[in-house]
Simulated scan of single mutants.
Amino acid sequence: MLDLNMSQTILIVEDNDDDFEATERALFRKKNLSNPIVRCRDGQDALDYLNRDGQYASRDEHGPPSLILLDLNMPGLDGRQVLKRIKQDDALCKIPVVVMTTSTAQEDIDASYRAGANTYVHKPIYWNDFVEAILRLHDYWFQIAVLPK
Results as ranks from 00 to 15, higher is better:
residue 108 D to K: 04
residue 50 L to Y: 10
residue 108 D to M: 06
residue 36 P to W: 05
residue 61 E to R: 13
residue 67 L to N: 04
residue 79 G to E: 09
residue 37 I to Q: 07
residue 79 G to F: 03
residue 96 P to Q: 03
residue 55 Q to D: 09
residue 73 N to V: 10
residue 34 S to Y: 03
residue 86 I to L: 10
residue 50 L to F: 09
residue 60 D to Y: 03
residue 28 F to H: 14
residue 37 I to L: 15
residue 55 Q to I: 13
residue 104 T to G: 12
residue 66 S to P: 00
residue 89 D to H: 09
residue 31 K to Q: 13
residue 107 E to P: 00
residue 71 D to Q: 05
residue 51 N to L: 14
residue 67 L to C: 02
residue 51 N to C: 12
residue 13 V to M: 11
residue 79 G to V: 06
residue 24 E to L: 14
residue 54 G to Q: 06
residue 56 Y to R: 08
residue 112 S to P: 12
residue 49 Y to C: 06
residue 101 T to K: 08
residue 18 D to C: 00
residue 77 L to H: 06
residue 53 D to T: 00
residue 87 K to S: 06
residue 36 P to S: 08
residue 19 D to H: 15
residue 25 R to L: 10
residue 15 D to T: 01
residue 16 N to A: 08
residue 83 L to E: 13
residue 56 Y to H: 13
residue 13 V to D: 13
residue 25 R to A: 13
residue 43 G to I: 05
residue 56 Y to F: 15
residue 76 G to K: 02
residue 82 V to G: 07
residue 42 D to V: 02
residue 96 P to I: 03
residue 45 D to I: 01
residue 64 P to S: 10
residue 39 R to G: 06
residue 32 N to V: 00
residue 21 E to Y: 12
residue 110 D to I: 11
residue 83 L to Y: 04
residue 38 V to P: 00
residue 13 V to S: 09
residue 60 D to E: 15
residue 43 G to T: 06
residue 57 A to V: 05
residue 53 D to F: 08
residue 38 V to Y: 11
residue 27 L to T: 01
residue 41 R to I: 12
residue 52 R to F: 09
residue 14 E to D: 07
residue 88 Q to W: 02
residue 30 K to M: 13
residue 41 R to A: 13
residue 70 L to M: 08
residue 75 P to G: 07
residue 47 L to W: 05
residue 106 Q to W: 03
residue 84 K to D: 12
residue 16 N to W: 07
residue 114 R to A: 14
residue 92 L to R: 11
residue 97 V to R: 04
residue 66 S to G: 13
residue 53 D to I: 00
residue 108 D to V: 05
residue 33 L to H: 06
residue 42 D to E: 15
residue 17 D to T: 12
residue 54 G to H: 06
residue 76 G to V: 05
residue 108 D to H: 08
residue 66 S to Y: 01
residue 80 R to Y: 04
residue 110 D to N: 11
residue 99 V to N: 09
